[in-house]
Amino acid sequence: MWKQPAPANSSFNEYNTFPLPQTQRGQSSHAHGPVGHTQQPLVTGTSVLGLKYDKGVMIAADNLASYGSLARFRDIQRLHPLGKHTLLGVAGDMSDFQWLKKELDALLREEDALALTDSHPSLSPKNIYELLSNLFYARRSKMNPVWNAVLVGGWDKVKEESFLAYVDLLGTTYSAPTLATGFGAHLAQPLLREAYEAKAGIDGEGPLLTQEEAEKVLEDCMKVLFYRDARSINKFQIATITSEGVTISDSKSADTYWKFAEGLRGYGAQTQ
């Protein structure tokens, strides 16, 4: 079972407990045996947007799963309902997303089965979010991250309030009335905040956006993302989560305007 002790001049000490088994200092990088990248995302989804409005939460994501820069799968739903009052919007690796769906669906089925006999309450959005953030942090700590950024939107039946929070592959967590992952955090988040604060104020004390207003803002943001994010597609879905439950819209697209492109000079095969 135990091997011979490593010779003193060995470049790699597999018995080290701390630091973890690693190359001795001063060795060149290709001498690293077991150390390397744990994985890389392969088929990926881009930004997810989330926004609280007066009746609940809206989450938007487009239908594209890219293979690198190739727009490989154009009909992928990245919004996944969990029970009656929770929904995930998932960016990042799509196979990890599929695995996540399977795991969480199994968990919810188990909860449902118990609910019938013991009439115990169903998992709240917060419960699911905490579970996810624990999972993501535990996995990144094993150097084997779940390669996603997730928005959890929901309706808390007990507190009678909406829920919106973010967790990503590093186990980073935060919550805000407007949220966005990836490119959306740079391009859409300022627009979402602007619209949100225009009514609710910086402290969020004022009235929230109405359903129509919220939908309009999200559609605008999806358009901006389509213009500027090369991994996006002009085909997206918006989910709404209210006290009534989850509804996911059919795929739709934003009206785009490309006339200005004719005036652009310096790209492509132009003669003048």
């Binding site: 089925r109 449902d112 089965a113 019938l116 006999t117 013991d118 009439s119």
Partner: peptide
């Protein structure tokens, strides 16, 4: 009331 049920769910 309703405790110790004898009907349970095995799957959905």
């Amino acid at each position: 009331k309703g405790a110790n049920r004898r009907i349970a769910s095995l799957d959905e």
